[in-house]
Amino acid sequence: MANTNWHPIEQAPRGAGPLLLRSGSGPLDPVFIGSQADAGQWLAGDVEVHPLFFAEIPQFDADDSGVAA
């Protein structure tokens, strides 16, 4: 996955999340939001998942009204 925001899951920081997680490298592979539990397993909600790649969720600047400045 060259030239992309997706990185191998092995490069994710310990205890990371929330992150976008992907189960494969193809465009039709499932993508979900998840995090890494203290024990090291990846979770999407209460379900353990086995992602191959992760991407950081971008942070957006917003004022108190929720509208970007």
Rank of each mutant, 00 (worst) to 15 (best):
A39Y: 10
I57P: 11
I9F: 01
N5Q: 15
Q36C: 05
D63W: 00
L28N: 09
F32C: 07
W6V: 00
F53V: 01
L21M: 09
S65L: 03
F53M: 01
P18W: 04
L52N: 06
F60R: 13
F60I: 13
Q59P: 14
G34L: 11
L20R: 09
F32T: 05
V47H: 12
A2E: 08
V49D: 02
I33K: 04
L21K: 12
H50W: 15
S65W: 01
P51T: 12
V67P: 00
G66E: 02
G34P: 10
G40N: 02
F32L: 14
P27N: 08
P27S: 10
P51S: 05
A69C: 09
Q36Y: 03
E48C: 11
A37Q: 07
M1Q: 04
M1V: 12
A12E: 07
T4R: 04
D63Y: 02
D61A: 13
P13G: 11
V67Q: 00
F54R: 05
D29Y: 03
L28Q: 14
E10V: 13
A44G: 07
L52D: 03
P30W: 13
P58M: 03
I9R: 04
W42N: 00
L21E: 08
F54Q: 04
A2V: 14
F32S: 03
A69K: 01
Q41G: 10
G45M: 13
